[in-house]
Design a protein around this nucleic acid. Structure first.
Lengths: 206, 206
DNA sequence: GAAAAACTGTACTCGCGGTACGGATTGCTG
DNA sequence: CAGCAATCCGTACCGCGAGTACAGTTTTTC
């Protein structure tokens, strides 16, 4: 890794924290470079403008989360051959990871951008939309595997169920941030886990 | 209502739309007064500074939602004496209201503020936190009424379940905004409804 | 019709985001 | 070690928008 790449990474890390705390529009380049330890010229050497920064931030955020999901759901599959059990294990792992974050979850960058859509160009918005679609497709694949073994009780749409996980996480992040209570995120993942258990492994309805 | 009050209302309405589209930090007073049709002097006659605007915006938003919830859950109780049925009806009404919004849900002001916490004084943040607590207390009360009649299957914490509704709505708003698909909000409320049904009215587990 | 409320107009300060560009430094490469 | 490219610094500058000050004008209300 060249020195330039390390600097870029440092800028992106600082910028992401700032954006999650005060929003993209209110995040000044000056404060970012102050904390990252370089000058304004140095910043604009790496990023053409603020929107280029946003693009790279999103890419970085999506990549990081993709790797996290890969690891968590792969680990679940390692620990059980049953698709439902594997998923339930993964959800518990996910809850643990979220609970172990030192100062609570710093926030979802996609959610932050969503609430400031007008500030970004189409490329950034397309990136966020695609990442959401990708994550939901991943979850949907998992639920398909489960439904093949455990026919769901209610007529539940697997797409909606996949969406639901994203919703719960994003919503719970907001909840825990607003109430300043990090544990709420963990608990929401676990209650979603209970819902999944009920839907697939409970006794047949009607 | 005096004329001043009407102007304040107009300012707040315009400002809320702008904040939900681009964030508080990126919302300039100048554009607000331009759209509201008054001058800067007029604005500062009504609001001491930008934080005063934020305070009143939150108050207005919370009041509006309180009234909406009052109406929806009251109507559910009118349509069924059974607490579970009443709630399920109300959820369907809520889903309908959300689906009937002309351009999709404009966004949750509390979520927007949550992702820009550093921009606001403690008073605003306390307001948002209290509103979330109040809403969850309302939902919790409903679930207590339901659980008294229908003992829940799993060992489910009613506080978590109450939180879950807020999470679903906030998360689904983000989802529908990001994907530009308003219907997803409606569907998430309905799938949450299915979860509630499963938890309380399904046959006993184990 | 008088007092109070609800604005308008203008003119200004001031900080900061953002840009431009030339120069310095560092690091790799032959 | 020479030299070129990548990396970063200094500085000067523009423009916008928050906020202030204050005097005048219209509108509402009693």
């Amino acid at each position: 890794m060249g020195k330039g790449e390390a600097t870029r990474e440092r800028i992106l890390e600082v910028a992401e924290a700032a954006v999650l705390a005060k929003g993209f529009g209110a995040t000044s380049i000056e404060e970012v470079i102050a904390e990252a330890g370089l000058t304004k010229s140095g910043f604009f050497y790496h990023f053409r403008d603020k929107n280029a920064l946003a693009r790279e931030m999103v890419r970085r955020y999506v990549d990081t989360n993709d790797r996290l999901f890969d690891e968590i759901f792969e680990r679940g599959r390692q620990l059980s051959d049953d698709p439902l059990q594997a998923f339930l294990i993964s959800l518990k792992l996910l809850a643990e990871v979220m609970a172990d974050l030192p100062n609570g979850h710093p926030g979802c960058l996609i959610a932050s951008i969503c609430y400031q859509e007008r500030l970004f160009d189409r490329e950034v918005r397309d990136l966020t939309a695609q990442s959401v679609r990708d994550w939901n497709a991943r979850f949907r694949g998992i639920f398909e595997g489960i439904a093949a073994v455990y026919p769901p009780k209610e007529a539940v749409d697997l797409d909606d169920l996949a969406d639901m996980l994203s919703c719960i996480v994003d919503g719970a992040i907001i909840l825990s941030k607003t109430l300043n209570d990090p544990r709420r995120l963990e608990r929401q993942i676990l209650i979603f886990r209970s819902c999944v258990k009920l839907m697939f492994s409970g006794p047949a309805l009607s």
